[in-house]
């Protein structure tokens, strides 16, 4: 009567072991897949600089979490500007982008791509296309730009939808001839939308002016840094009341010329802070 039943117990142990092995197997395999995907994803976050996002796109980090890769923006783009990234393309699989050199953004007034987005990855707050910031045009090759050689190409300036705001021409002296002018195309980041019409229109074999994502095209001041003249303008007066005339300092080597200069008069050199 006291005979224990080892059989079911043994089977139990076995199935528990089996369960743990199976679970471990599944968890480890999937964990590895997850790690691989994470790494692949990390790489695809840094996409080709020439792949520009549609107007209103959230910053790249948030965009990749918000875009569901449905292609509605692509299908609603009337100019076939937008494309969806394919596997192994230099942009995250399935996300919309455009290559300005091929087809630039025509900056539709009603922004159909933003309206089409079901998730808000293209920010529905954007209602004025002039406020979009798809990238920033940069005159990257000044050596080959025809205007910079003193020729009057001006094409990038002429095609700019925000002519005289986003691109202006600055007149410089042409040192090569000494008598002519150079009209330098200058891009202003407060107006440039990054539509890419300038890059598209550049007459060179490879465009001298290109649109880059903002993080590449723009520098950023340190948070503590202030432009003195702007602060002065804001305050209405100079923030430093008077020029403090600090005493000049010099080594205490009486009578010896420093770098061939005679000793300065009128100061003993013992002053200072």
């Amino acid at each position: 009567m006291k005979v224990t039943q080892p059989k079911p117990q043994a089977r139990n142990t076995l199935s528990r072991r089996q369960f743990l092995t199976d679970t471990g197997h599944a968890a480890c395999s999937v964990g590895l897949i997850g790690l691989g995907l994470g790494m692949y994803g990390q790489q695809s976050v840094v996409h080709a600089t020439q792949a520009l996002r549609p107007p209103g796109a959230l910053d790249e980090e948030h965009f990749l979490g918000a875009c569901v890769r449905c292609g509605l923006c692509v299908e609603d783009c009337p100019y076939d500007t937008l494309k969806l990234g394919r596997l192994f393309d230099p942009v995250t699989t399935g996300t919309p982008y455009f290559d300005a050199r091929k087809v630039p953004c025509e900056m539709c007034d009603d922004i159909p791509c933003v309206k089409a987005c079901p998730t808000g990855a293209l920010d529905p707050e954007l209602t004025d296309i002039d406020q979009s910031r798809m990238g920033l045009a940069v005159l990257i090759d000044r050596e080959n730009c025809l205007n910079m050689q003193g020729l009057r190409c001006d094409v990038c300036y002429r095609v700019c939808p925000l002519i005289d705001k986003a691109i202006t021409l600055t007149m410089l002296r042409n040192p090569r001839t000494g008598v002519h002018a150079i009209f330098e195309p200058v891009v202003h980041s407060d107006a440039c939308t990054g539509c890419g019409k300038c890059e598209h229109a550049c007459v060179l074999e490879e465009a001298a002016i290109k649109v880059f994502p903002h993080n590449l095209a723009k520098g950023e001041l340190g948070a503590h840094y202030r432009w003195g003249w702007k602060e002065k303008e804001k305050a209405g007066e100079a923030l430093v009341p008077d020029i403090i005339d600090l005493p000049d300092r010099r080594p205490e080597l009486e009578g010896l010329p420093i770098n061939g200069m005679p000793p300065l008069g009128g100061n003993s050199g013992k002053g200072g802070f």
Partner: peptide, 25 residues
């Protein structure tokens, strides 16, 4: 990570999307 890792390779959306928008690789 903040991005949709599965959608990098999800064959279901990739095939359907690819047939409409182009498969590439």
């Amino acid at each position: 990570t903040g991005y949709l890792v599965w959608e990098l390779v999800n064959p279901v959306s990739l095939l359907h999307r690819g047939l409409i928008f182009g498969m590439g690789m």
